[in-house]
Design a protein around this nucleic acid. Structure first.
Length: 594
RNA sequence: GCGCCCGUAGCUCAACCGGAUAGAGCACCGGAUUUCUAAUCCGGAUGUUGCAGGUUCGAGUCCUGCCGGGCGCGCCA
């Protein structure tokens, strides 16, 4: 059989899978059976080195449809495989696994790819489609981000990085809920604090935003052209607040009073300044956290350009709206949702869902083919209705994917911390970052699966010890940097060409282990991206750092034998590259000194 | 009551499309440093994968029922 060309742009796994697929394509019996049953070749890393480097169970999976013995099928596949200098040997094992043992040359080639690709190593070739819109955090601009939003930020940013590494074009977006009633409540809250600072004492409403930041905003805003009403002006004829009466009715009345006393423009002036202040604070906070967006999409922009009405009009034209009990309903249950939803309330106000339909429609209209929303676990019911909305607007509901992020619990001194605003304990992302640092925070937030509750232990996140996987990984990187500094201090040079003869010096078991781990990196990136699961990368980096530390303790790199020294330095340079790439993917720094 | 997520070692968690003997870290015990950073390494124990069935060559993984935890089920945002 003809030897095939090496394919350095493929991951090792893809190289093996390609060999198997080519062989299958030649064996028509199996090819047809595999195609009929859409059995894809599954090539996996082995868990046990005794089973070689890669394995496939394809023979077992073909056994039933072809009614043949899996080991015979395996033998047939092996006979049909192209020769490759990257494969050392192939064995049939157990019930019909085909085990591949890769040659040293295969690993050496991978090392060279790592060093030559540098920070690009592990990244897939760019794909033209789909264009992905990734929306995450989208916390309401009514106060600073809290620790739960931090998880959304870290998770969303990392998933974005992973998808880009997988070759997708990713657009990151933050949806700013800057329209509607809650903005009025925010404005009223600031307004009352401003009045308070002018000596106009009005009881603060149950349903207002009480945080200290509201007072800060009230201090800072421009109120030059506003007249100051009296407390009596404010309170005259207002209904009672909770607990005597309904706090919702009260706050709405208060908002109406604020608008009456200050004028729509005056109140809007306050509300908009409050919004800008909070939004800017959120953006600063996230930027410091290494989380940035391509667009901050304003809900107000949807309202002002009439796109919500346009969307409703479109639904109306399609006969997909109906009236009941004075409200306007969208028959979401016709599109897979469990019940129909109101889009315009009896009082004429459009619901959130109406904006959501228009917003997601707008995402598709802007040319994004695939939408990913990262939402809090309490929003799990949204997927069905959002898909229903997209379906009604003429798009495939399947084009929307929702990833849910479960809640975060903070622990200090082994104690669960209460995160209510009223408790004295901190709960903002900014405070968390100040306490544990950005690196530890970014790392801890994505260490666990997004759909698993997260216990965030502040003491471990801060500890500079082997308890802490962030430092463990960073330390491996710093150690390698230190080795190269030592090399300079000793005035020793090294040949960075990594020529074949030199890499042949890598014969120690720790070196084989390290090379194997390094070669897995592109596969781990792909896995993590496909599953939106950064924790795979976290675990991988931990394992890789362990392989390096083990090697470090077992062998000296700066040895007298120049050929061996060059080979070892080449290997740890590749290790440094992969660790740095992986950490950057997580938004964590790769320090040269610790 | 209905829906979604989760249940794996003492603790916190992995386990890629169903694969070979279910793995890490922490904690605990013992050992390694005249050496490139000991924030390191090496060795040592632990499992009815919540329970009960089912599907099949093979199940932590898929299906059904049950138990336990979280979240949701508005003309709220």
């Amino acid at each position: 059989m003809p030897a095939r060309q090496d394919r350095s742009e493929l991951s090792m796994k893809q190289i093996v899978a390609t060999l198997v697929n080519d062989a299958l394509a030649r064996l028509t019996d199996f090819a047809d059976a595999a195609a009929d049953l859409s059995i894809e070749t599954t090539v996996e890393r082995t868990r046990d080195p005794d089973h070689g480097d890669f394995t496939t169970n394809i023979a077992m999976r073909l056994a039933k449809p072809t009614r043949k013995n899996p080991r015979e099928i395996a033998a047939g596949i092996i006979a049909a495989l192209d020769d490759s200098k990257l494969i050392e040997k192939i064995e049939i094992a157990g019930p019909g696994f085909i085990n591949f043992y890769l040659s040293a040359a295969a690993f050496h080639a991978e090392l060279r790819t790592i060093v030559s690709d540098g920070e690009k190593y592990g990244r897939a070739k760019p794909k033209d489609s789909p264009k992905i819109l990734l929306e995450f955090i989208s916390a309401n601009p009514t106060g600073p981000l809290h620790v739960g939003h931090g998880r959304h930020a870290a998770y969303g940013a990392t998933v974005g990085n992973l998808l880009e590494a997988a070759g997708y074009c990713v657009h990151r977006e933050y949806y700013v809920n800057d329209a509607g009633r809650q903005m009025d409540i925010l404005g009223a809250s600031v307004w009352l604090r401003w009045l308070g600072s002018k000596g106009v004492e009005v009881p603060f409403p149950e349903n207002g935003y009480r945080g200290a930041y509201i007072r800060d905003i009230a201090e800072d805003i421009d109120t030059e052209n506003l007249v100051t009403p009296t407390a009596d002006d404010v309170l005259r004829d207002l209904p009672a607040d909770a607990p005597e009466s309904d706090k919702e009715i009260y706050i709405d009345a208060l908002v109406a009073r604020a608008k009456a006393l200050q004028g729509e423009d005056g109140f809007d002036h306050i509300r908009q300044q409050a919004l800008d202040s909070i939004r800017d604070d959120i953006e600063d906070d996230l930027t410091e956290f290494g989380v940035t967006f391509d667009t901050w999409f304003s809900e107000q922009s949807l309202t002002k350009t009439g796109r919500i009405d346009d969307a409703l009009t479109l639904l109306e034209k399609r006969g997909l709206l109906y009236k009941k009990d004075g409200a306007t309903w969208f028959p979401a249950s016709n599109f897979g949702d469990e019940k129909d939803r109101v889009v315009v309330r009896e009082n004429g106000a459009k619901t959130y869902f109406a904006s959501d339909i228009a917003y997601h429609f707008d995402k598709r209209e802007r040319g994004f083919d695939y939408l990913i929303d990262i939402l809090g676990a309490d929003h799990h019911g949204y997927l069905a209705r959002l898909r229903a909305g997209l379906g009604a607007m003429g798009y495939q509901g399947d084009d929307l994917e929702v990833q849910l992020v479960q809640f975060v619990t903070l622990y200090r001194n082994g104690e669960k911390m209460q995160m209510s605003t009223r408790s004295g304990e901190f709960d903002t992302l900014r405070e968390l970052r100040a306490e544990v640092g950005n690196d530890a925070a970014r790392f801890y937030y994505v260490m666990r699966s997004n759909n698993q509750h997260l216990d965030f232990d502040l003491d471990i996140a801060k500890s500079q010890s082997n308890d802490n996987p962030v430092f463990y990984i960073q330390y491996a990187h710093a150690r390698i940097a230190s080795v190269f500094r030592q090399l300079t201090e000793k005035s020793l040079g090294w040949d960075p060409s990594g020529s074949g003869a030199q890499l042949g010096q890598l014969r120690e078991p720790q070196e084989k282990t390290l090379m194997t781990s390094l070669s897995r990196y592109p596969e781990v990136l792909e896995l993590a991206a496909n599953n939106r699961a950064p924790q795979h990368l976290v675990h991988y980096l931990r394992d890789l750092a362990n392989d390096f530390h083990t090697y470090y303790n077992a062998h000296t790199f700066i040895v007298d034998d120049e050929s061996l020294r060059n080979a070892r330095l080449y290997l740890i340079l590749a290790t440094r590259t992969v660790i740095a790439n992986g950490l950057h993917m997580l938004g964590v720094s790769a320090p040269n000194k610790m």
